[in-house]
Amino acid sequence: MQSTILHISHAQCQKGGEPLFAPVDLVLQPGEMAVVAGNNGSGKTTLLEAVAGLGSFCQGGIHFAPDNNRDSWLQHSHYIGHSLGNKASLTCLENLHFAATINGIRTNEQQLSDGLAQVGLHGYEYHYANDLSAGQKKRLSLSRLLLLNKTFWLLDEPFVNLDQTGCDWLFDCISKHISQGGAALLTAHDNKRIHQQADHFIQLQRP
């Protein structure tokens, strides 16, 4: 992978004209994991959305090296939020196919079902996303991460809704991604294991 660095410098997000949290600084390189923690309403999601490019900062912002432009950053990152991005009335396969093609990746059906098998959804190819359990829906959205193969993973509370095996599996997934030169920025408000594992730990403070 090409060497890329994400700088978040003195970044603040606002809601209703008021800053949500004290300025955040972070330098995230491939091979590193950063965890954002904070109480409910402290702005974890808002921060992550802004980093992903969905929202905006009221102060500071992100700088992406080597090419600091939106397109290059979007090409190297993938964001999965609270709402997972699956269409309820499409099958798992169709959901994954849409995610791949809209991101400019050509795939065949075999690759897609392999992708689903990787997250433990083998045999669910033709099930509607609506019929999956909460944990399976999460797995479906995570299968996008593996298929799109972007360097920076931006995950909002990825461990919520997953059972113990699911958590273990996701933990291994993220560790593997990082050991292969990926990077992850995730929010997790109480997950000791991931907090210990993190290279950077950001506790959001009141401004």
């Binding site: 979007l74 939020g81 991005g85 699956n86 809209i102």
Partner: peptide
């Protein structure tokens, strides 16, 4: 699209 999050999927695709 906003509620199920797929809006983010295509707005962040660089489209």
């Amino acid at each position: 699209d906003y509620e199920d999050g797929s809006l983010a999927l295509y707005t962040l695709s660089g489209m």
